[in-house]
Design a protein around this nucleic acid. Sequence first.
RNA 1: GGCCCCAUCGUCUAGAGGCCCAGGACAUCACCCUCUCAAGGUGGAGACACGGGUUCGAAUCCCGUUGGGGCUGCCA
Length: 463
Amino acid sequence: MTQEIRLRFAPSPTGYFHVGGARTALYNWLVCKRLGGTFILRIDDTDEQRNRSEWTRGIIDALSWLEIDFDEGPYFQSQHKDRYLEVANELYEKGLAYYCSCTREEIDERARLRGGVPGYDGFCRHRGLASEAGYALRFMVPPGETLVNDVVRGAVAFDNSTIEDFILLKGNGTALYVLANFVDDVDLRISHVIRAEEHLPTTPKAVLLYEALKIQTPVFAHLPVLVNEKRVKLSKRRDRVAVEDFRDQGFLPEAMVNYLALLGWSPGDDLEFLDRQKMVELFDLSKVSKSPAFFDVVKMKHFNKHYIAAMDSDEFIKRCLPFLERNSWWQGSELQQASFRTIAPYVKERVALLTEVVEMVDFLFLDPSQLDVERYTLSDADVDMLLKFLSKVESIENFTRDTLEESFRSLGEEIGVALRKLQAPIRLSLTGRKIGPPLFVAMEVLGKERSLERIRDAIATRH
RNA sequence: GGCCCCAUCGUCUAGAGGCCCAGGACAUCACCCUCUCAAGGUGGAGACACGGGUUCGAAUCCCGUUGGGGCUGCCA
């Protein structure tokens, strides 16, 4: 019988969804698609104190935005409590687990007396305690060695004497993570467990459970953690790495997915830009890197810029709308949309983030008085040039980018000034900014009347 | 402290004993192109942590050291 391929992404909703989780989800998804398996979302919400439903919502939204779709779920661990109890009881009945009455304080105190080595000492192992309120159920770790076969790290051996008799059931009768995870992975027939490296130390505990109940272990793979600039594991509290924030900043999901795929994995052949299909085709868990990777927003921005520039204009316009709509000056009228449509192709290749679009086009929609004019003083020469430009352009019937450029070039020749020098004061008068889309396109979209008026205003109000 | 993992340019990585006095990408610097910006082009600087082995030959294998990281919770 061939083994069914079933993978799960099992986040715990204890905070906003961050890029590390997204990377783990993506790798699971890629392996799953590559192997033609079933992808499952499971919400590991056994810790009721710290879980909040809005976090679950956030995880699902972010996954959907990244187009990491699942075939089954979401399942919730909080709904499987009975099963955990059932398995815990089975372990107890078989003599593989025992009840323990020790408090944290007692354990620490004994550890201190022993010489400071922390951890549980097996105090209740042979006391034959029965189930009672407040008593925890502990797994009786057998002597020997436990091997974790990890696809990215190879065989990792743990001496069982270094694994304490871990808790299965808390004193309040609910399951702890190791048990809950094990039971669900078995019940959901999970074939591959792919998660971050921080889970590696608890994996032998899971393996012990599989062995105790004589169940075939899944394939394990532990991904290197994502770190910040200090090379410390990304933290929800310290680091601003919420997937949602990146979306709000104008990152494209395809750029983010592409970047994330390459954080810890390389397809070789100097390949960098990969679409989904290519990723699925080339992804190979055994080629995943073993060392921590720095999450570099600067590089992700580069990917984003590439994807924005490569998009066709209609798609670009569509994706910009939510960002334009954040501004009070955007009403989405026919005229506004037409203006934006004309300038969009030029904006598209100039921004790294969708949020940057706003400052590139706002001059088209803002009243001149609202333009946030950057500090710049027009010199006498500037004014002189502006006047000459005005007189040249006033007579233009056909006010287009081509005729404007022609006038501009001939003016440059006449007064012997480089075009780069000439454009600066004009741009500033029209847009209030020193940089922006090509000047003549901007003027064409702005129209003759508004363009000339803004230049005249600039001259009149110079200081 | 204990257990475990890791170690190539600032960053992400290619490299599975000779193809490597180490390749690509981001960032950075210079120049070219150019109506600004961006893009593009050309070029520069920039790494195999260290020490021992193994081998005719090591970034690649082994051991050690150092450094970094993860875990060490009745969190996940």
